[in-house]
Design a binder for these strands. Structure first.
Lengths: 208, 208
DNA sequence: GATGATCGCTACTGACCAGTAACTTATATC
DNA sequence: GATATAAGTTACTGGTCAGTAGCGATCATC
């Protein structure tokens, strides 16, 4: 007999996942605002009207909570990277799409968490996973840049340094962005993209 | 009677300053490597072959040590900003000079400390000073960009976002740079500058 | 060679906080 | 309605670490 997703057993499981997500949501906000170290699990629990030991029913350690936050953020970046790999168009078109997605993610809680979290705040094990996920995203960016250079849509140059420059500008968004202040995430993405693609020097012709 | 800088009294003062600097040097390295929170003053003291209470003869708190580190870093940026204000040339030339200096500073201990330190690691008082110093540097960058737009040497655009994009790319250097690995600080500065000024899109004419 | 400042030490306190033990209460299942 | 499982509680532990008290040694100055 087929198990219905609406039976009581699954209702409990769904609630459990919702509660888990609520913990992450509250935690990531606090990590971003006050920093990982300045956030105590008592604080997080209190915001949720429960006590600290309750959190340990959903996570095994504070490190696991932080890692789950950055993992969710990186999942967003990886999705953006994956969709750009499926996508058609020349290197520049694909890079533009990736930059746009990347910039938008940097204005969201879990995305911000990626760049506001320093390596050394994670346990050695989590740090390794964190780094390897970031490396994957980086690799995609470099590939797209290389494609663009090959097809002539992107200026030739040091691919590694170009990627660092682009990701630096994008990552930094997470450090200064505050929701609902003048620019929308879309506008930020668009203007950041404009400077990165067009450069600071004026262009004379019809190019750009 | 003129007091000689070589008399004994001043020798003691000079030694004191040297010791103070040594503390900062060891501290900033550890802050950059392990993070502020993971660095205990016992560690710092041990590296200097003294004990923790000795450090309190030179600084009144751990916060003061951190603030002094970021202050020294920002002093470097402020010097770069000041020298660009004295300097001649159009906006683009001056911005290029500033970007070069900025990039180089990001590869040095105290410069790295600026961007590796989060606001919330400082006390409220230090944080306010930290922010206002950063704002000064930012203001200069925007002015130079505005000058450049006015004189036609820099492409028109959202000045605030252009400044964020540039400083983001530069600040990020401090997060990935490791001394003695492939690229020299000069090369990093030059290539970062090239991407920021020229943009990712290829240029056809003699411009750039 | 007495005096007062500086320097560094040993030994401690007090706060904070991640994580645990051991319980009560609620709920699904037989 | 008995029973096992899950969810939440109170009360605690143990480790870390910034910062302090108060000592003895050193040294410039008179």
């Amino acid at each position: 007999m087929q198990i219905s997703p609406w039976d009581k057993r699954n209702a409990r499981d769904r609630e459990r996942l919702l509660k888990r997500d609520a913990v992450l949501q509250v935690a990531v906000r606090s990590f971003n605002e006050k920093g990982f170290n300045a956030t105590s699990l008592d604080d997080v629990a209190e915001s949720l009207n429960v006590t600290k030991p309750t959190l340990y029913r959903y996570f095994s350690s504070k490190d696991e909570i932080l890692f789950e936050c950055v993992r969710l953020g990186l999942e967003g970046l990886q999705n953006a990277a994956a969709s750009v790999e499926r996508r058609g168009g020349d290197g520049m078109e694909r890079l533009k799409a990736l930059i746009r997605d990347y910039a938008m993610l940097m204005t969201q809680d879990f995305g911000m968490c990626i760049t506001r979290t320093s390596d050394h705040e994670l346990s050695p094990e989590s740090r390794m996973k964190f780094r390897s996920m970031k490396r994957e995203v980086d690799a995609t960016i470099r590939e797209v840049i290389e494609d663009g250079i090959r097809d002539g849509s992107i200026a030739a140059g040091d691919v590694r340094m170009m990627a660092f420059t682009v990701t630096g500008a994008l990552n930094w968004i997470a450090r200064w962005y505050e929701p609902g202040r003048e620019l929308s995430p879309e506008q930020i993405a668009e203007r950041c993209l404009a400077t990165l693609v067009g450069g600071l020097a004026p262009r004379s012709g019809a190019e750009g």
